[in-house]
Design a protein around this nucleic acid. Structure first.
Lengths: 189, 189
DNA sequence: CGAACGATTGACGAAACTCAAGTAGTGTGG
DNA sequence: CCACACTACTTGAGTTTCGTCAATCGTTCG
């Protein structure tokens, strides 16, 4: 049995501290997964696009929250028979491996890269995750959300995007869309 | 069929770019998992203690390397029958969920915490991962390795540990062991 | 129109990095 | 046992990058 739900931009899909249960998977749209510290600092730990699971917690408490970036359909997969169904099991392991690899790239980015490198990596990640055509990036995120993904402040994000625009590396072509310019982004992964 | 191998301190367990295959699991000792950038910057993405798998790649290329922190025994688990064996499958999913949760905490630490908070979190993580008794920490890592885990420089790590010693928060009680002092570490998770 | 929200830009400050020098430890060979 | 080499660690001075605070601008929507 699976349940399909729709969330609008900014809507919370589940809260930090809520219980697991059925596994939510993105059908269409996009979501961010984030952790909140007690003092309000926020870190976005992952981006999820179509086909991505948001978590894998059957029965524990969730240590992070999820929120829709745009109109997003979520299907909830029952995990009851997971381990006796080889196909489902293989799917889960494959999905988890991809999330794990992405988190490890994220750790490397945050631990060892400069602000510019982080943003270049971030744009690549968004394009990959949301399936944008090469050279174009649909970015349905505020500067604050970009900052919370890259571990920067919104001012730093804004400054670097502005600089890249001036230098012809990035062009705004719509409210949420950008095109890569003639000059390459510095040191993109 | 499983193979048991032993590695000494500093020995490479596998290299970045090598092939997956059987899944390596720590039996005793401890290992670090890290990524290298082309220009030599290094980020340690995970710590593995007894019971932890190092990766879950049956047949892809590994995007990270692993190295023993001390004398360490590794058993390699064959994944051939993984998906048809419900028990093994459940074990894998459980293990991957724990690694994933840890990476997400690591991302939050690197993206949104100060140097002091990172080191406090790091010490907790080491204690948990290597199973140290409460209040004591066995730290078989150089300052450079600590820096590569926390996204800092070795000088910053050294300065903060020195300060904590002066302030009675941390005491060195052996070549690789420390005790928490009377004063708590600032803002440990 | 005007309120609300997001984005941009500037001036300034602080946390952490870089470079450099010097100090333990640890192991080795005489 | 001592001299040495080697590595890890500590500490200081100066610099850089990025964060903070604040003002302004642009858009959207009621």
């Amino acid at each position: 049995m699976s349940v399909l739900k729709r969330y609008e931009r900014g809507e919370e899909i589940y809260a930090q501290g809520s219980k697991g249960g059925r596994l939510p998977k993105v059908c269409s749209g996009a979501a961010i997964i984030y952790a909140l510290l007690e003092d309000g600092r926020r870190q976005i730990v992952d981006l999820a696009g179509p086909g991505d699971f948001l978590h894998f917690e059957f029965d524990g408490e969730l240590d992070h929250a999820a929120e829709a970036l745009c109109g997003t359909e979520i299907v909830e997969v029952s995990g009851d028979s997971a381990f006796s169904d080889p196909d489902l099991c293989a799917l889960l392991v494959e999905q988890m491996r991809m999330r794990l690899a992405q988190e490890r790239r994220h750790v490397t980015m945050l631990g060892r890269k400069t602000a510019q490198e982080r943003l270049a990596d971030f744009l690549d990640e968004v394009a990959r995750c949301l399936g944008c055509p090469p050279g174009y990036i649909d970015l349905p995120m505020t500067r604050q959300q970009v900052a919370d993904y890259t571990g920067l402040t919104l001012e730093t994000v804004s400054r670097i995007f502005s600089r890249w625009s001036r230098e012809g590396r990035l062009r705004k072509i719509g409210p949420t869309s950008y095109a890569r310019g003639d000059h390459p982004l510095p040191i993109a992964a």
